[in-house]
Amino acid sequence: MSILAFLLRTIGIGGCAFLALYVYDWGLPGASRVPYLSSIPIIGDLTTGRAHSYSADQVRIATATQRAQCDARLEKTVSTFQYDALAAQLAEERKRRLIADLLTTEASKRAEAAVRAKSAAEAALEARIAADTGADGGRWTEEDLKWDGKH
């Protein structure tokens, strides 16, 4: 109380009003370093000041906005990573499909050649059977029995 009386005698009521408004607007220097002092409703406004409280609120809002933007970018980045992984997987599947198609084509060609060879062998056999006009009448000869014994 004696400090207030001293201030009133020294600078007058106008000066005290000016100091009170200055402290209300800008706060007490160094008082913001005291922990939890700014969380007390009326004393907190006087110690930290209205300008500092407004600045702190703006920083909190900007920080929340930046955090939301960062989270959105992170989510998009993960989506981009997933997209790249799926694109690589699709390219690998297409490559494997092309190889499978080539192998299928080659196998089809070999199968067709085998069918043609079988048809030619059957035709040759039929021709040999038709050409066999011997007197044995399709009986086993001595040569046939030797061959059958070896195989």
Score class of each variant (00 low, 15 high):
residue 100 A to M: 07
residue 102 L to D: 11
residue 113 A to N: 03
residue 102 L to R: 11
residue 43 I to V: 15
residue 81 F to P: 00
residue 146 K to Y: 12
residue 51 A to P: 00
residue 36 Y to F: 14
residue 134 G to F: 07
residue 122 E to A: 05
residue 150 K to F: 09
residue 87 A to H: 09
residue 28 L to D: 00
residue 141 T to D: 02
residue 61 I to R: 08
residue 22 Y to G: 03
residue 80 T to A: 15
residue 49 G to T: 00
residue 40 I to H: 00
residue 101 D to Y: 04
residue 11 I to N: 12
residue 150 K to R: 15
residue 11 I to A: 07
residue 132 D to E: 10
residue 27 G to V: 00
residue 51 A to D: 07
residue 17 A to G: 04
residue 94 R to M: 13
residue 34 V to C: 02
residue 13 I to L: 10
residue 36 Y to K: 09
residue 52 H to S: 08
residue 104 T to A: 15
residue 116 R to I: 03
residue 12 G to C: 02
residue 93 E to T: 10
residue 96 R to L: 08
residue 72 A to D: 06
residue 44 G to K: 00
residue 11 I to K: 09
residue 92 E to V: 10
residue 88 A to L: 14
residue 15 G to P: 00
residue 64 A to T: 08
residue 111 A to R: 06
residue 59 V to I: 13
residue 104 T to G: 11
residue 101 D to R: 06
residue 146 K to P: 05
residue 131 A to L: 03
residue 76 K to Q: 15
residue 133 T to I: 05
residue 75 E to Y: 14
residue 65 T to L: 15
residue 126 E to I: 01
residue 20 A to H: 03
residue 92 E to P: 01
residue 90 L to S: 08
residue 93 E to D: 11
residue 96 R to W: 06
residue 143 E to W: 08
residue 145 L to R: 11
residue 102 L to Y: 03
residue 29 P to C: 02
residue 98 L to M: 13
residue 37 L to S: 00
residue 12 G to N: 03
residue 128 R to P: 01
residue 144 D to L: 03
residue 38 S to V: 04
residue 68 A to P: 04
residue 59 V to L: 14
residue 140 W to M: 10
residue 12 G to I: 01
residue 60 R to I: 02
residue 87 A to V: 07
residue 67 R to L: 15
residue 102 L to I: 06
residue 82 Q to L: 10
residue 139 R to D: 07
residue 115 V to R: 11
residue 118 K to Q: 11
residue 23 V to T: 06
residue 128 R to G: 05
residue 114 A to W: 04
residue 31 A to M: 04
residue 35 P to K: 05
residue 96 R to F: 07
residue 5 A to V: 09
residue 147 W to N: 10
residue 85 A to V: 10
residue 133 T to K: 15
residue 71 D to W: 11
residue 51 A to Y: 05
residue 139 R to G: 05
residue 136 D to V: 02
residue 117 A to F: 03
residue 128 R to E: 15
residue 81 F to E: 13
residue 13 I to V: 13
residue 46 L to V: 04
residue 38 S to E: 03
residue 86 L to M: 12
residue 79 S to I: 10
residue 62 A to T: 11
residue 71 D to K: 14
residue 43 I to T: 08
residue 47 T to M: 05
residue 69 Q to R: 15
residue 34 V to K: 01
residue 132 D to R: 03
residue 37 L to M: 07
residue 151 H to F: 04
residue 150 K to V: 12
residue 122 E to V: 03
residue 128 R to V: 05
residue 33 R to N: 09
